[in-house]
Design a protein around this nucleic acid. Structure first.
Length: 402
DNA sequence: CTAGGGCTATGC
DNA sequence: GCATAGCCCTAG
């Protein structure tokens, strides 16, 4: 059982460090494996750090530099403090500072100064949040941060300062610092256990690629070797389920598998496959809790429309198997211009449905906090917006501002 | 996924 | 005929 735990960690580490894994959040993974309970354990600490770094990295990939990023940076600071003698780096402070500035500056659009969104953001971040930081004597409260605080507050009164801040590229700077921070911290974490094994295997196999390649890499994200546990990395991640792939795709992948890894012996391949199986099993178990798609809403007025895009997948969650299941032949899309019946089925227009006050408020609140991320706002209020699509939210917001 | 143009129903 | 609100379509 002790061994099992080690393997859990090993797998979790591998999973968290992988770049393309959008369906499993690191935190869910850790809690699902009941890891991260004992903060004194160094390997758990590193696992948590990796998890936070991964989340920051994911949000950068999504293009989000927001208050969640601030949360993550604060968490990272706490984790670093738990480790022995880890100093807070300059890039960490700067990343925090510029992210915080961005969180306020993103509300500085020229047309709606009067809406008070900027002031709200100032209050939320630069008053409340940073007050807490100051209270805990956090190292994140740097001189730079304090100077920005002055400037941001000045901007409320002083149109010139406002304009200057608005026109400076805060977001870009924040992203740069965040990237630098990530690079540094990944480097501090060093190679993952799995990567070390991979490197050793490659060395043993006498692989002679680029001279300096043996040193632990700066960014574990770059692990393209990955013992090739994941055959499908560059394919579409859905096929984790083994469904949703047509046969051609499947065949293609098999071909690739056989050609592309001359460096691994047969036994290694088997081990890699088994590890993959294990990962898939974990992912399958975690999936229901991470999926935001299934909003329990029995009286589904949208159900009929979902099919319009043709993406309704009734992924049969049968017992997991290594064999790719055969799918029914897909329905032809009827996209040819030669088709006389222009559209396969025009589908009747939805009935006009006036917005309830509750919905309008939820929308206001959502935009105030998260800007124009309609899909995200909808996902935050699945019940209120049960009858609205993200496009509806967008349209309503447009109407409200006309 | 989002932005923006356009369409439809409704009320004046 | 015009304005408005909600819904649809599509490019990027």
């Amino acid at each position: 059982m002790v061994d099992m735990e080690a393997i859990d960690k090993w797998v979790a580490e591998f999973f968290i460090r992988r770049k393309t894994n959008p369906r499993v959040s690191p935190t869910n993974l850790l809690s699902a494996l009941k890891l991260g309970d004992s903060p004194d354990d160094c390997s758990n600490l590193n696992l948590k750090k990796a998890s936070v770094l991964r989340q920051i990295s994911d949000s950068l990939i999504r293009g989000d530099v927001d208050e969640e990023t601030l949360d993550l940076l604060e968490t990272l600071e706490k984790l670093l403090l738990q480790g022995e003698g880890s100093m807070l780096t300059e890039s960490h402070k700067s990343a925090y500072c510029w992210t915080a500035v961005e969180c306020a500056a993103r509300f500085m659009w020229p047309l709606s100064v009067s809406e008070g969104l900027y002031e709200d953001a100032l209050e939320r971040i630069w008053t409340k949040r940073i007050r807490v930081l100051k209270g805990s004597r956090s190292g994140l409260v740097s001189g730079e941060l304090l100077r920005w605080e002055d400037d941001l507050r000045k901007a409320v009164e002083d149109a010139e300062v406002y304009r200057r801040i608005r026109e400076s590229n805060v977001r870009y700077t924040a992203v740069c610092f965040l990237n630098r921070l990530l690079q540094e911290q990944w480097a501090v974490l060093g190679s993952s256990s799995l990567e070390s094994v991979a490197q050793r295997l490659l060395l043993l196999a006498g692989d002679k690629r680029g001279g300096g390649g043996v040193r632990s890499r700066e960014d574990p994200n770059a692990v393209d070797v990955d013992v090739d546990v994941d055959v499908d990395v560059d394919g579409d991640n859905r096929d984790v389920h083994g469904v949703e792939n047509d046969e051609q795709h499947g065949a293609e992948e098999v071909g690739r598998t056989q050609e592309d890894e001359p460096s691994l012996g047969k036994g290694d391949k088997v081990a890699a496959r088994d590890l993959k199986d294990y990962l898939l099993e974990i992912q399958r178990q975690i999936e229901p809790s991470t999926s935001t798609r299934q909003i329990p809403e029995p009286n589904t007025p949208q159900a009929s429309r979902v099919n319009r895009t043709g993406t309704s997948s009734q992924a049969s969650e049968k017992s997991w198997s290594r064999v790719r299941p055969r799918l029914p032949t897909p329905v032809p899309l009827n996209v040819s211009p030669l088709n006389k019946k222009k559209k396969a089925s025009p589908l009747p227009r939805r009935k006009k449905n006036f917005w309830r006050l509750e919905e309008v408020e939820a929308l206001r609140e959502g935009v105030k906090k998260h800007g124009t991320s309609w899909k995200y706002i909808k996902s935050l209020n699945p019940v209120v917006f049960a009858e609205r699509t993200e496009v509806d939210l967008k349209d309503k917001w447009r109407n409200m501002n006309r």
